[in-house]
Write a protein that binds this DNA or RNA. Structure first.
Length: 270
DNA sequence: CGACACACCTGGATGC
DNA sequence: TGCATCCAGGTGTGTC
């Protein structure tokens, strides 16, 4: 699924096309997402004007005068803008038809995504307990290091924990740990402040670099214009098992950590 | 609390 | 060609 760069790519693409527009029709063809789409979503949003498209972690927030539409893309979701009406295909679950033409189409084969209405998304239960944004000021080496005190879990699932920091998913956790030279299985509480400073810098760098390439497309992801992201070609360890480390030449290893595929260089990462 | 396994779901790749 | 198996970008929930 979309991690932060993919969600932000979607947000940036969509925002100029939908802000100021009125939602004329909300068509729901499949409400069985991760949580069933509430029956009153349509009544809440039809007729409302979109004032802003924001992002919090991997959630998109469509702001209107009366409240917010909270959208998560799950593992395989995408939001596309269609200027001309095209008949819906498989997994095109929801359309936001805009007054004056054009529509935003939500597609999600695996249906791990979600849509909620909230009077104020920021206080919605899904967003309330989230950690800081990785590209924001609050997120720094000291914060991570302090949060890791007493933690015996591996550092990789630690930085993928949205209560600690949002937006770092499996691809970028692997990539950032490689860049920082930290072994993904190292206990989070046994990493020095210095190395956390470096890790934070690498997390920021890898997310920003991916953003510049429009995100990473492994299988499903497309941005609002339907185009894939091109960061895949820049991946240094993710999905590179047995291939030579780009830094030292040793074969990249794959193992499973907290149920997620984990890629690392056993020589460069300690 | 923290750590971990599990669940949800579809489709593509792989191997026999 | 057909079928079984494995794997995939997330994250809330339940259990210890």
């Amino acid at each position: 699924m979309p991690e932060l760069p993919e969600v932000e790519t979607t947000r940036r693409g969509l925002e100029p096309l939908i802000v100021g527009r009125r939602i004329e029709t909300l068509s729901i063809r499949e409400r069985r997402l991760r949580w069933p789409i509430a029956r009153d979503l349509r009544a809440k949003l039809e007729g409302q004007q979109i004032s802003k498209l924001a992002r919090r972690g991997k959630y998109l927030i469509v702001h209107t005068q009366v409240g917010d539409l909270l959208v998560h893309l799950g593992m395989s979701g995408s939001l596309r803008f269609l200027a001309e009406p095209v008949p819906p295909g498989p997994h095109d679950h929801v359309d936001l038809g805009l007054a004056g033409g054009g529509l935003v189409r939500y597609n999600d084969p695996r249906r791990f995504g979600s849509m909620h209405f909230a009077p104020d998304a920021r206080s919605h239960w899904l967003l309330r307990e989230l950690g800081p944004e990785p590209l924001g000021d609050e997120f720094c080496g000291e914060y991570l290091w302090r949060s890791a005190r007493g933690r015996r879990a591996a550092i990789k699932p630690f930085i993928m924990n949205a209560a600690i920091v949002v937006g770092v998913g499996n691809i970028y956790a692997n990539e950032a740990l490689f860049a920082a030279g930290i072994h993904p299985a190292r206990a989070a509480g046994r990493v020095s402040l210095d190395r956390y400073e470096s890790l934070v810098a690498r997390i920021r760098a890898v997310l920003e670099a991916a953003l510049e390439q429009g995100g990473t497309t492994l299988r499903d992801f497309v941005g609002s214009d339907g185009r894939p992201g091109y960061f895949r070609q820049s991946l240094t360890v993710y999905e590179r098992a047995d291939q030579p480390c780009r830094r030292c030449g040793a074969p990249i290893r794959r193992r499973v950590l907290a149920q997620r595929a984990t890629y690392y260089c056993p020589r460069c990462q300690r």
